[in-house]
Design a protein around this nucleic acid. Structure first.
Lengths: 220, 220
DNA sequence: GTCTATACATCGATAGAC
DNA sequence: GTCTATCGATGTATAGAC
C-alpha cells in the first residue's frame, strides 16, 4: 500500500477530485516537513516547528494530515522516491554505454561523489536506519524503491555482458552496492573520514577489478 | 577522549579511588540503560523507564549521571566495546588458520549468521546511525572501536598472504566488510528479506571469489 | 544516599472564534 | 478554512524529607 494515499479524509461531504489533486498547501506542508524531519530527526521535530516552516498554523497542518506519524511517513516516502531518480539516473547522458570496466568505474565514481556531497542524503540514511524499528514499512519503502531497482539494474547489466567473469550477477550487485553504501556510511554519516581516511579512487579501482580480465599468470 | 571517564563529579569532597572503582549501582544503571536505549531508541526512552528497569528511583540515577545524554553515551559506548569483542573474535578456536579461501568463507559466514541472529546488534546499528548527528562522537566510537580494527584485521590478513590476487588489501577489506554489513542492514535492519530474498551463501560464494585463483581461460 | 513529590518545559492534538 | 488559545500527557531535572 502506498502511504501517500492515506491522506486525512474529511468527514463532511468529500468533493470529487480531492484525491487526485492535493492542494498546494498540502504540498507546502510536505516540503517543509521533509526539510525539518531530515534535518532534526523524527522525535526532535515538533509539529509547531513544521507549521512554522510551512508558514501555517499547527491547526491547519492537522487539517491536512491525521497526525505526526502520517506526515512523517508521507514526507520521507516522497523524498525516497524523488531521491531514487537522482541516484538511479546518474549525471551524464549515457552512463551505461561503453566498455564494461569504464561503465562500472563511472557508475561507482558518480555515486560516491554524489553521496559525499549531499548532506540531505546522509540525513535520509540516518532517518531510515534510525526509525526502521518504529516505522518498518517506511524502511521497506527504501528497500523497494531505492535498493531493489538499483540492485536489479546493476545485476541486469552484469548479466547482459556474459563476457564478464561474474558467476552470480545478483550477489555481485550486492557486493558493489554494499561497498559503496557502507563506504558512504562510514566516511560521511558516521563521521569516520578523519579516523579512517581513504581516497575514493582506491575503492573504485578495487571494485572495477571485480570485472577484471582474468590474469594469465598462474600462481600458488 | 573516552566518554566513560566523564562520570558525574560530585562537588563535595571526592574520595580517592572513586574513578577506578565505579559502584555496583552505577553498573546496574548502565546495564539497564543499555537494554532500554537499544530497545526503544534514545528519544523514546524516558529516564523514568531506565530508573524502573534498574530498580532505583530517578533521583538516584541522576546522582550517578549528569543527564540523559551522558548516560546514553556511556551505555552505548560500553556496548560498542563489549560487542566489538564478539564480532572480532568469531566462534571457533582458530578462525584465521587454514587455506585463505576457507578462512575467508568461515569469517564471512560466521559474521552473517551471527548478525542475523542478534536483535540487539540490529538495534545497535539503528542507534548508531540514527543518532550519529546528535552524537557524532559516539558514531566515531563505532568507527574507532569496531570498524577500524575489523578492517585492519582483514586487510592485514590479505596483505600477509601475498599469493592472493589482491592489489589493494585495505580497499578490498572495505569491500568485504561493506558487503557483509550492508547485506545485514538490508535484510534485517531495514526489514528487506521478504522483498529482496537472497541466501547468505550466494553472497559468501561471490565474496570468496574475490580471492579466487585467476582463471586460465582467456576471453573477450 | 535514596526516595517521594514536584517544578518547569514541551509536545501532540483539539476546541472554538472568526 | 485558518487562526489563537489551551488542554492533557509526558519528560527532564531537582528540592527536600528521611
Amino acid at each position: 500500500m502506498v502511504l501517500s494515499t492515506i491522506y486525512k479524509r474529511k468527514m463532511d461531504k468529500p468533493q470529487a477530485g480531492d484525491r487526485q489533486q492535493p492542494s498546494a498547501k498540502a504540498e507546502a506542508i510536505v516540503a517543509a516537513a521533509m526539510r525539518e524531519f531530515l534535518a532534526h530527526s523524527y522525535a526532535a521535530t515538533s509539529m509547531d516547528r513544521v507549521a512554522k516552516a510551512a508558514g501555517l498554523s499547527k491547526a491547519t497542518v492537522y487539517s491536512y494530515f491525521e497526525n505526526k506519524e502520517e506526515l512523517f511517513s508521507t514526507s520521507i516516502e516522497r523524498f525516497a522516491k524523488e531521491k531514487y531518480a537522482a541516484v538511479f539516473n546518474p549525471t551524464g547522458d549515457r552512463p551505461w554505454e561503453g566498455e564494461p570496466r569504464v561503465v562500472l568505474r563511472r557508475i561507482v565514481s558518480n555515486f560516491l561523489e554524489m553521496a559525499a556531497g549531499d548532506p540531505q542524503l546522509q540525513d535520509f540514511m540516518r532517518s531510515m536506519m534510525g526509525e526502521s524499528k518504529r516505522f518498518p514499512i517506511l524502511a521497506q519503502v527504501y528497500v523497494r524503491y531505492i535498493a531493489k531497482p538499483v540492485l536489479e539494474t546493476i545485476a541486469g547489466y552484469l548479466a547482459s555482458h556474459r563476457s564478464l567473469p561474474i558467476a552470480d550477477p545478483e550477489a555481485t550487485a550486492r557486493i558493489i552496492l554494499g561497498s559503496m553504501v557502507y563506504f558512504h556510511l562510514l566516511q560521511e554519516v558516521m563521521h569516520g573520514k578523519d579516523i579512517l581516511p581513504m581516497e575514493r579512487d582506491r575503492l573504485v579501482n578495487s571494485l572495477v577489478d571485480l570485472v577484471r580480465a582474468p590474469l594469465r599468470t598462474s600462481f600458488k
